[in-house]
Write a protein that binds this DNA or RNA. Structure first.
Length: 425
RNA sequence: GGAGAGUUGGCAGAGUGGUAAUGCAGCGGAUUGCUAAUCCGUCACGGCGAAUAACCGUGCACAGGUUCGAGUCCUGUACUCUCCGCCA
């Protein structure tokens, strides 16, 4: 959500920003509508003022005057009601548009239409060269007897997964490793539910943009969360913090659910794209200062790069272009880890600065120390680790000729000290 | 699933249907003079405005209703607490 006053005062800038984001918004129409809303506010408030004056005079009025004043006040009340109904109708139209406005992109974000125009910032780690014929992660799971994926699909449907023994442990070990790392960086580790009411979806900016992507259970009027970001973003909604409360850092773990409605036929093999997965999410709430949030953005990026380095996975950092960013985002990096079987990098992390766009939707504010002014916070989010997707590059990059999997040194304490894992078919 | 109690500003906490007390914190100003204190104002959102001025409107969990007038009365919903039932 954006500030309408900012839009009125920076109309050209806003139009350019929307265009860069690939959003077709009638900004002039919005401003005209806003004027109309304000006119109706002014007129109805004038009526309310007069009505209050009449009402308040009744108590001290003489018994003879009273019926007269009451009649007048009642009549005015009906006019006021009619005016307020007009206002409510226009206000609803206005609000509907406001909820659909994207954030403006950073001036530093590359301008582009889609993912082909994302910019590679750097590549880190060496792509492995195998002196044997490398296998893809599905074959590796089968060799080690680590999967029941075919059976589980019969029970749970497509895009489900079931993994066993050493691999199941590895999945959880990755999360524990990341939680410990985030805790060491000052994050509050928190496990959160996957159930969400509707309001947080608007707060995050999932709705009204991507309704088809989310599971909904009408019997209970409740949704399944696609990421802990959803929950963490609303955890402190409507609070008025002090500047000293900031920054607030959460490392949120939750099962995540996505319908993958727009991805029919994509990544149907293996663990890359499943309906239910686990994610440990980095979430930051900081003060309303773009230098401050950009600093945190870099910090979050650094942490996730370290995680991939700790897991000894080659990766690239992408700066996402304006047209490929989601509506909420000011600036976005994606991390992609190398997947040998696909001979390309695939997304494991997505790191975003949302500035105050979500905070306006959740009404999360703080009082600043310098002036005692109330401001909206900035929010940022980044993947810590998402599994099973992260297992794909992990298995494939660390595979050995015999199908066993090498465990990077940093992860070994979480795998009972093992340097390799090997299952039995 | 059932019964009861509750929800008032950043926090604490009053409030018989007639303009939301008071304290603390924060911010602004003034005074005194010394390891700080006192006094005054301000303290959410919005309208009108050049304005961070004045004035006005809206805010007492949320949504309706009754009334000239609702924090207060009525209905519904959400959430919190206590208890009963069921339960990993």
């Amino acid at each position: 959500m954006l500030d309408i006053k900012f839009i009125a005062e920076n109309t050209q800038l806003v139009k350019e920003g929307f265009a860069k984001k690939n959003f077709d918004i009638d900004v002039d129409g919005l401003l005209t509508l806003h004027k109309r809303v304000n006119q109706l506010k002014t007129s109805s408030q004038a009526m309310a003022e007069e009505k209050n004056r009449l009402s308040n005079s009744i108590k001290s009025a003489s018994p003879e005057e009273r019926p007269n004043i009451i009649a007048k006040s009642r009549e005015l009340g009906e006019q006021l009601k009619a005016e307020q109904e007009k206002l409510a109708a226009e206000q609803a139209k206005f609000d509907d548009i406001m909820w659909r406005l994207p954030n403006l992109p950073s001036p530093q974000s590359p301008v582009g239409v889609d993912d082909t125009e994302n910019v590679v910032v750097r590549k880190v780690g060496d792509i492995p060269h195998f002196d044997f014929e490398p296998k893809d992660h599905v074959e590796l799971m089968e060799i080690n007897g680590w999967t029941e994926c075919e059976r589980i699909a019969k029970v749970c449907g497509s895009r489900s997964y079931a993994i066993t023994n050493e691999l199941a442990r590895l999945e959880l070990a990755m999360h524990l490793y990341v939680m410990d790392k985030l805790a060491a960086n000052g994050f509050r580790v928190i496990t959160v539910p996957s159930l969400s009411k509707e309001k947080p979806l608007y707060g995050q900016g999932y709705l009204p943009f991507a309704k088809d992507e989310i599971y909904y259970m009408p019997q209970d009027d409740i949704y399944l969360s696609g990421t802990a970001e959803l929950i963490l973003n609303s955890l402190r909604a409507d609070e008025l913090l002090t500047e000293n409360d900031l920054p607030i850092l959460y490392a949120g773990f939750s099962p995540c659910f996505r319908r993958e409605a727009g991805a029919a036929g994509k990544d149907t093999r293996g663990l890359t794209r499943v309906h239910q997965f686990m994610k440990t999410e980095q979430f930051v709430i900081c003060k309303n200062d773009v230098n401050e949030s950009e600093k945190w953005h870099q910090k979050l990026l650094q942490i996730s790069e370290e995680i991939l380095q700790d897991f000894e996975l080659p990766y690239q950092v992408l700066e996402v272009c304006t047209g490929d960013m989601g509506a909420p985002k000011y600036r976005q990096y994606d991390l992609e880890a190398w997947v040998p079987s696909q001979n390309c990098y695939r997304e494991t992390h997505s790191c975003s600065n949302i500035t105050d766009w979500q905070a306006r939707r959740t009404n999360l504010r703080y009082r600043d120390n310098a002036e005692g002014k109330v401001r909206f916070v900035h929010t940022l989010n980044n993947t810590g680790i998402a599994t099973p997707r992260a297992l794909v590059p992990f298995l494939e990059n660390h595979q050995q000729a015999d199908g066993s999997i090498r465990i990077p040194q940093k992860l070994q304490p979480y795998m009972m000290g093992k340097t390799f894992i090997k299952g039995q078919k």
